[in-house]
Amino acid sequence: MTEAVLKVENLQTHFFTKAGVVKSVDDVSFEVGRGKIMGLVGESGSGKSVSGFSIMGLVDHPGRVVGGRILFHGRDLVGLPDEEMRKIRGRRIAMIFQDPMMTLNPVLRIDTQMIETIQAHEKVDRETARQRSRDALGQVGIPSPDERLMAYPHQFSGGMRQRVVIALALAVNPKLVIADEPTTALDVTIQAQILYQMQKLVAEQHMGLIWVTHDLSVVAGLADELCVMYAGRIVERGPVGRLIDAPIHPYTKGLIGSVPSRNPRGQPLTQIPGMAPTPIDLPAGCPFRPRCARASDICRTTPETAEHLPGRFARCFHPHLEDAA
C-alpha cells in the first residue's frame, strides 16, 4: 500500500455512562489506501459504526475519543479544533448513513440540501453549485436530474434516496468515504446497483472507501481488505479473498461458517455458541474466550495483534493456521 489516505493507530473511543465506561472502540488500527475499499465487518455493537463516527469527529455525548491517532494524509484529526474539523467533514471525508429514509431532511428540497453542502466548503455562487449538484445526480444514475433537484425526499424511493445521498457525499470530491451499512435498508436488486455504482466511483475518483457492514456476503465481492471487529477490537485483518477462504481467527471462522450459502444443502448451519458480550462488562483477556473452542489459560491475557502469515493479522493465541498456510 503505497499511499495511505487514512491511517488509524490504536484508536480508543469510550462512552462514559452512569453504569460505567463502555469501551466501544478499543485499540483499533487499520489503514485505507487510495482507490482501495476496506470492509469493516462485525455484529451490532462491535464498535464498527463508532469507529466511523470517531473518524468524522461526530461521536455523540457521553462518548469521546480517548486515545490513539487518526492520520488523514498524515495529519492527526484527533483533537482538531471544531472549525478545522468542520472543513474536513463533508469536504475531504464524506459519510453515507445506513437508512436513506432518515438521512435527508424531510422539509428541505433536494437542491437546498445539495447546494448548502457545496457552498459550505467552496466559494461558488448558487447557479454553479446547482449545476454541480445536477451533474452529481446524473453521475449516480438518477434520471432527469433537473426535475429531481426540485423534489422533496419523500418523493423518492429508498434506492433513489440512497443515490441522492451518495451524490451529495461525492459532489465535493472527497478523498475518503465512510459508508455505514449503506445498503442494509435496501432491496437486494437495488443493493447490487448501489454496490456497482460505489465501486465505479472509487475507481474513477481514486478515493478511499470504508464499507461498514455486518453482511459478509456484501463486502466479499466489494472490498480489497477486510477488518473483522469483535467487542470493540479488530480481531482479524487481511486481504479479502484469503481471509474469507481461510480465516485464521476462530471468531472469523465462526462468522463465515454461519453464512448459509457456503454450507451444503440440508446441513445444519454452524453456530457460534453463546452470545456477544455486553460492552460494559467484557471478559478479561480475549473477549471471545468464553465462546471459543480453542480457548486455554493463556487467553486470560489480552492477545496483541500479530502478523501470523504475510499480510494476515490477528489477535489470537491459537490461530487457525493449518489450512491458511
Partner: peptide, 13 residues
Amino acid sequence: LDYVKFARAKGLS
C-alpha cells in the same frame, strides 16, 4: 435524528 447528524457530517456550520 439521522438527518441532523448527516447535516453535520456534510460539514455544515
